[in-house]
Design a protein around this nucleic acid. Sequence first.
DNA 1: TGGAGCTAACCAACCAGTCGGTTACATAGG
DNA 2: CCTATGTAACCGACTGGTTGGTTAGCTCCA
Lengths: 187, 187
Amino acid sequence: MQQRNADRTRSRILDAATDEFAALGIAGARVNRIAEVAGCNKAMLYAYYGNKDQLFDAVFTAYVEKYLEEVGFDADDLPEYAGRVFDYFEEHPHHLRLAVWYRLERPESSRLEAVLAVNASRLAELEKARRAGRIRSDFKPVELLSLVQSIATSWSSMNPEFAAAAPISRARRRRAVVTAVAKLLDR
Amino acid sequence: MQQRNADRTRSRILDAATDEFAALGIAGARVNRIAEVAGCNKAMLYAYYGNKDQLFDAVFTAYVEKYLEEVGFDADDLPEYAGRVFDYFEEHPHHLRLAVWYRLERPESSRLEAVLAVNASRLAELEKARRAGRIRSDFKPVELLSLVQSIATSWSSMNPEFAAAAPISRARRRRAVVTAVAKLLDR
DNA sequence: TGGAGCTAACCAACCAGTCGGTTACATAGG
DNA sequence: CCTATGTAACCGACTGGTTGGTTAGCTCCA
């Protein structure tokens, strides 16, 4: 096994940082701990990623890319899209936490260009589907997208109170999400 | 004007702490800044509230009490209940941030008894309404409560991307929330 | 042999929390 | 009505420890 490998070190840092940021956020994360878990010196982290904030950006960008690629979008089948969003966050609970930290700890000004672009394109797709009559709903595209997004993430690890009060299987929770979105589209 | 007033100082600290914690979370909040904004010495803060974590608890408990009192609950009119939740967080955006910080930064073990109790009682009310035939839905009470909660908070300051992409009035957003919940209950 | 990969040691700034002492105020005694 | 006294409210200054970030230099490999 080679002792020096910049790419491997970079990705080890990114992995460790993902765990740390997901668990504790930007303010709560400790650079020392990230370096320790990554099994390298703290200075490497600064050599590769600049500083703590930029490291978080790198982590968050990597997550967004993976998310967009894996989940995709389908304006013509929003219930199943919601189901895929649900699945993704069930399998990557860390990523939902990252998204929430991002919204809380990042000023509104410094939003990722990519996220804004994706939202705009999805709104356009929804509008297109509406005009083509493939979506018949009184909701505007923005309203639909916002509602679908929150419904899809309504369960997840962010709402553990409910799970504690009345345990419920993953399959059933998924079904609740999918049918809820379907009901949204009824007229 | 009197120079010494324990109650006034306590509440000034609580107000300052509410702003600070809402903006920056527990890890991000600075005790010095809270004392400065409250216009008193940092030591007072420790005399009255113990430490930083306990101060957050005091802030959060105060918010929960206000929220529960102001919003109430109505198992027989979930759409309007969702509307009230929407209104509350529109008028107190700080409080939604507090709730999210709480979920992110507090271990699952240390959840407030009051919150758990309220959830349980609401689930019971929903179940009662279902048995009485006042709610006809395929969703279980837990599913309903979870969905309603996320729909009600789907807009709010937590989803600014959508607002930026397609601005939309508060009244219309409220209507979207209320009708979405109503659609959930259709069969 | 030169530069990229890596490290130990270091630093200034900052942090939550504490401590010894001071001041305003209520009240009791004269 | 005035003043002595006890005490709760308050504060400046400090501390031990931690933080994000840097630097000087070593080591490995092309």
